[in-house]
Amino acid sequence: MPHIRPATKPDLPMVLDLAHALAAYHGDAATLSLAALERDSLGPAPWVTLLVAEGTTGLHGYAALCPQMQLQFGARGMDLHHLFVCDTARGKGVGRALVQAALEHARRQGCVYVTVGTDLQNRRAQAFYRRAGFDQIAPDPRFRVKLA
Rank of each mutant, 00 (worst) to 15 (best):
I4G: 01
I4S: 00
R5Y: 11
P6S: 14
D11M: 04
L12M: 10
L12H: 07
L22G: 07
H26C: 03
D28E: 13
A29C: 07
A29L: 11
A30R: 04
L32W: 08
D40S: 10
D40P: 00
S41L: 03
L42S: 01
G43I: 07
A45T: 12
P46V: 11
W47M: 10
V48Q: 09
V52N: 00
G55H: 04
T56I: 03
C66A: 10
M69F: 11
Q72S: 12
R76F: 08
G77Y: 08
M78N: 01
M78C: 06
D79E: 13
C86W: 00
T88I: 05
K92E: 06
V94Y: 00
R96G: 08
A97Y: 02
A97Q: 03
L98A: 09
A101D: 01
A102V: 05
L103C: 12
R107Q: 14
Q109L: 14
Q109H: 06
G110M: 09
T118L: 04
L120V: 11
R123N: 11
R130F: 04
R130N: 02
R130Y: 09
R131Y: 06
Q136C: 09
A138D: 15
P139F: 03
P139H: 08
D140W: 11
V145C: 10
L147Y: 09
L147D: 04
